[in-house]
Amino acid sequence: MLNDWLFIGILLVIAPIVPLAATVIPDFIGPRKPSRLKSQTYECGVETEGETWIQFKVQYYIFTLIFLIFDVELVFLYPWAVAFNQLTLFGVLEGILFILILVAGLVYAWRKGALEWF
């Protein structure tokens, strides 16, 4: 069973080599003439102002939060889906109940306006 993962393990080592080589080669064969003007932050030609890492809308955070909860719950449903042959109708309904609790969360977030961008 571990042999199944051998391929992925090797790929995990080999795959980054391709982009790594492609991004390192220009360092050797490309020109290198750094200048202050060239390395300036590009914001449409307007000089950049203040700190870059400004604070963003909290809404990005809220959506990530809802995503986190949904993601965790949905991952748990995969074993349930794989074992479908062994399940009774009761077992399937238990899975449905699990989804319905999730739906309740979605409805709550919707009603509370957490899904509004503005």
């Binding site: 982009p19 991004t23 490309g30 750094p34 390395s39 300036q40 870059t52």
Partner: peptide
């Protein structure tokens, strides 16, 4: 063409992560 272009490092970047991200 892309291979023989200059690698420009903009000012104030976080160099290690900047180089890691394209991978």
């Amino acid at each position: 063409k892309m291979l023989i272009k200059e690698n420009i490092y903009p000012q104030g970047i976080d160099r290690f992560i900047y180089n890691l991200a394209p991978l």
